[in-house]
């Protein structure tokens, strides 16, 4: 199996506070990996460090086998001719005063299966609301728009940060349906989630992050079977859901 993403010994800071202490993780081709952990464990920062939105001070990032350490964010997103990295940030980061269609015009047109037409067939609701301002969409529609926007880069790897956040269970199911479809098309996914039960049911492999370091790594099914362990590693949300 080829590794799509390898992060090695990532050290990241926000100002003077040291957030990530040597985080290493990998995602193989077509694999779904989840990154769990309590609030403030450093999950979002890990994704931001991979995208170089929070440039890591130490460590290396390889994507599709190529060392991208030090590349600017937009080059990491576009990739180097063999598919890019789609990033769906926590809180969706819509361009609220732009229409749905305008939001989808921001990523540069990239050859591949995802175009405006195929995106609209995956998310018919976005097609219906194409001329609405993104700020007027419901939370679920905004999450779909954020995913759609990232898909237009035709990524081979998708970084999803808390896609279920603030959404009703029915809507979460709808969003996960779309993610499952991407997975079946062969897109590898690194999924950050507070909702460990949801993420473990979906992923092949799991990492658990605590205080900026990886404290557990293993098959998702194994971790899912041990709810006590999930509770102790990944926090209260999981125990309530279990």
């Amino acid at each position: 199996m080829t590794l799509l993403l390898e992060a090695e010994g990532i050290e990241a800071y926000y100002g003077k506070s040291h957030i990530l202490h040597g985080v290493s993780l990998s995602v193989a081709e077509g694999e779904v990996v989840t990154l769990l952990g309590r609030n403030g464990a450093g999950k979002t920062t890990t994704l931001r460090a991979i995208m170089r939105l929070t440039p890591p001070r130490e460590g290396r990032v390889r994507i599709f086998g190529q060392d991208v350490t030090g590349w600017p964010t937009h080059r990491i997103a576009r990739g180097s001719g063999n598919g890019g990295v789609g990033y769906v940030p926590e809180g969706r980061h819509m361009f609220r005063h732009l229409t749905v269609e305008e939001n989808l015009r921001v990523p540069p047109p990239t050859p591949g299966q995802w175009s405006l037409a195929t995106i609209f067939s995956l998310f018919p609701r976005l097609a219906e609301r194409r001329t609405s301002k993104a700020g007027r969409l419901s939370g679920g529609e905004q999450e779909m728009l954020a995913i759609a926007r990232a898909l237009l880069l035709n990524p081979r790897l998708l970084l999803l940060d808390e896609p279920s956040q603030g959404l009703a269970p029915v809507i979460v199911e709808e969003v996960m349906q779309a993610v499952r479809r991407m997975r079946s098309e062969g897109t590898a996914i690194l999924l950050v989630e507070q909702n460990a039960i949801l993420a473990l049911a979906f992923a092949d492999r799991a990492y658990v992050l605590s205080d900026g370091a990886i404290i557990h790594e293993g098959p998702a099914a194994e971790l899912a079977a041990d709810s006590e362990k999930v509770k102790s590693l990944a926090g209260a949300r999981a125990s309530r859901a279990a």
Binding site: M51, L53, P72, T73, H74, A77, R78, G84, Y87, P89, H93, F95, R96, H97, L98, E102, N103, V106, P107, P108, T110, R149, A150, L152, L153
Partner: peptide, 16 residues
């Protein structure tokens, strides 16, 4: 217009 609101997200979508 998108960058006026959130330049970081524009970069993460592959825009130079």
């Amino acid at each position: 217009r998108a960058g006026n609101a959130d330049l970081e997200t524009v970069a993460s979508l592959g825009v130079n």
